[in-house]
């Protein structure tokens, strides 16, 4: 069913329509928040928060404006931003990061380690970006949003978004290649 139809049904009180909508968008929201925060524990809660904000505001969602996907991603982006802005994060949130358990099972052990190492590198590179660059890059390369959509979601103009992505990519590369050079040097020694 189309998003529009689902939302109309939710507005007329259908619980099952809401279930379908949540199931459809859960992965998108969750993966964005996880990739932004790098923390599973936190992502569960922020995902729930995002959906609650969505349903509370669903009356104000204009069906004619279309694109529910960018609507809910915008809420997710702001939820993350608010969380990291808050002092709460400064006091409590940081302890969380130790909990991040990677439950990845590789078929082949050496593959697995290599894969895990690579993953860790990319993760670190993305998490080290300033938040506005991270947002833009995630939205572009994981959710294939148009520049104009990203501009709308992150409240910036299009040229700013482009330069954020450009600079962000440079930083990612620096981080990854820098790390690789270091690895090589270590191996040589």
């Amino acid at each position: 069913m189309e998003d529009e139809a689902l939302i109309r049904e939710i507005l007329s009180g259908s619980k099952s329509a809401m279930e379908l909508l949540v199931k459809k968008y859960y992965n998108i929201v969750f993966s964005y928040i996880y990739r932004y925060s790098g923390n599973y524990h936190l992502s569960y809660d922020l995902t729930q928060e995002t959906f609650i904000k969505m349903i509370k505001a669903i009356r104000t969602f204009k069906i004619s404006d279309g694109k529910f996907k960018s609507y809910i991603l915008k809420i997710a982006v702001n939820t993350c931003k608010d969380y990291y802005k808050s002092n709460y994060y400064k006091n409590v949130g940081k302890n969380f990061e130790e909990f991040d358990d990677e439950k990845i099972s590789g078929e082949n052990v050496s593959d697995f380690f290599e894969y895990k190492e690579d993953r860790q590198k990319v993760k670190k590179a993305i998490l080290n970006l300033p938040d506005f660059q991270r947002e833009a890059i995630l939205l572009k390369f994981y959710y294939d949003m148009k520049i104009s959509e990203i501009a709308d979601i992150t409240n910036a103009n299009e040229s700013t978004v482009k330069s954020r992505i450009y600079q962000g990519l440079e930083k990612v590369r620096k981080e990854i290649e820098g790390g690789e050079k270091l690895d090589k040097r270590r191996k040589e020694i």
């Binding site: 507005l11 009180g13 809401m18 949540v22 729930q48 609650i52 349903i55």
Partner: peptide, 17 residues
Amino acid sequence: CEIERVINSLSEYIPQK
């Protein structure tokens, strides 16, 4: 069950007619 949790908490907010 994580998705269920979200669905459960949302059902309170569905407009009732």
